[in-house]
Design a protein around this nucleic acid. Structure first.
Lengths: 237, 237
DNA sequence: AAGTGGTCTAGACCACCCG
DNA sequence: GGGTGGTCTAGACCACTTT
């Protein structure tokens, strides 16, 4: 676990542990004032920890009554995760096999996505992604070589995002994702061990760092019979 | 506009107005301390207003440097909207034609979704939804007749959500939505004027009110060639 | 070195829920 | 009426960016 360096984050983590270790839904948590004195912090610090837990859906608050453990909900709202995290969240073991690694000329489309000149080089990685050993998706990832020198020689089965973060200090902050309905072309179907022309998701994603620079552009085709989206959506207030 | 009753909300609204009235992206806003003294509030109150604006993507903050107007982003994160709102947000004119209205026995599946007995009645409404006059989706909506007496006789071309809210005081707060890849069955294809077996989204949605009671269950089939999802996703921290 | 946002404190008053 | 969460204050120190 990463070190928690703020008091409110340490308190939040403590409360997560307490909740996970067997508190029933709708159990009442200690009052904000009690938590403040017990952990020797101000009430505002307690409220910051609870704000985050409420936002994450682990607790709910009722004015005048207290703070309570939320009923676990099956679906979560959409979050930015890697394929590996996504699969683990679904209770599946993620895997990956690299089909292609190459350096190609960006061209107009990829150049625009990654904000490089069309004549510049980009890395291209094609991988088959698996869940519990079964083919789940084909993924073509494109990266700017200037940001990740030498990367293409170090691709293994580890998480690409992990490598970007640990080796290059690159943290992806947000992404634009587009989801289309599609069917598997025969070639894709064969690579995914699925019937040709069966339903599929075609997903494109451009990922950005904290300075809003495009870091990665990826096109993925997911088997529609094995993958779907579950989301919880709220009225914005 | 609804009345803003907290200081931080009034300040937030004021800043929204200022930003909308012509501030360029990356313009620097006044410092938190300046805003605090100008509006005669504490710095924490300023920070709460800015927190919300940052969350909404209108501003970004750089520690040690300042707070800046964010570049407008094309895509928005997923929000809970009706078909009509959704289409209007895409710049299309929504329409609807009612194909079926009937009262049927719930059965096990619908009973579970709407939390009524399998032998209870439910309303069923089948509609073809159009955008700019072109067929976009088929939608089967199921409702609990006890919550909406007489509704089935009043279905017109107006927004169903509008009727639920104005006639029955029902406000939908959140929903669980599931999105599957699919293809159009010949019957659906004909109703949607699309080729049979062409790509489609199959979407189910259960909508809940503020008390977490299921209000509506809907199954929709969207033409994949005319509809897709665009979302902006963020790392949760 | 000065200025900015990030975190935290100790205390206050209000709106709301419950016995 | 007593306790709870919701909002707010005035001030402090820290981490970081900019000059």
């Amino acid at each position: 676990m990463a070190e928690q360096h703020t008091k409110s984050e340490r308190l939040r983590q403590h409360l997560v542990d307490v909740i996970d270790q067997g508190l029933e839904p709708h159990s009442k948590l200690p009052t904000e004032r009690d938590l403040a004195s017990e952990f020797d912090v101000s009430r505002l610090t307690v409220r910051r920890a609870l704000d985050r837990l409420e936002h994450e859906g682990l607790v709910y608050r009722v004015q005048g009554a207290g703070t309570f453990v939320a009923a676990p909900r099956i679906t979560k709202s959409v979050e930015l995760t890697s394929f590996s995290e996504d699969m683990r969240a679904r209770g599946l073991v993620p895997g990956s096999s690299v089909l292609v690694t190459e350096t190609i000329s960006a061209g107009a489309r990829l150049g625009a996505k990654l904000r490089v000149s069309p004549s510049d080089d980009v890395f291209h990685i094609r991988r088959a992604r698996t869940a519990d050993g079964e083919p789940m998706a084909l993924e073509d990832t494109y990266l700017n070589p200037r940001l990740f020198p030498g990367l293409i020689d170090n691709i293994g089965s580890e998480s690409l995002y992990q490598i970007l973060e640990t080796e290059y200090g690159m943290k992806i902050e947000w992404a634009e994702q587009s989801i289309h309905a599609s069917v598997l072309e025969p070639e894709e179907a064969q690579l995914l061990s699925a019937p040709p022309f069966s339903p599929a998701f075609y997903v494109t994603r451009t990922s950005f760092d904290a300075q809003d620079r495009p870091v990665e552009y990826a096109e993925s085709t997911y088997r529609g019979d094995r993958y779907h989206y579950e989301l919880q959506i709220h009225r914005t207030r």
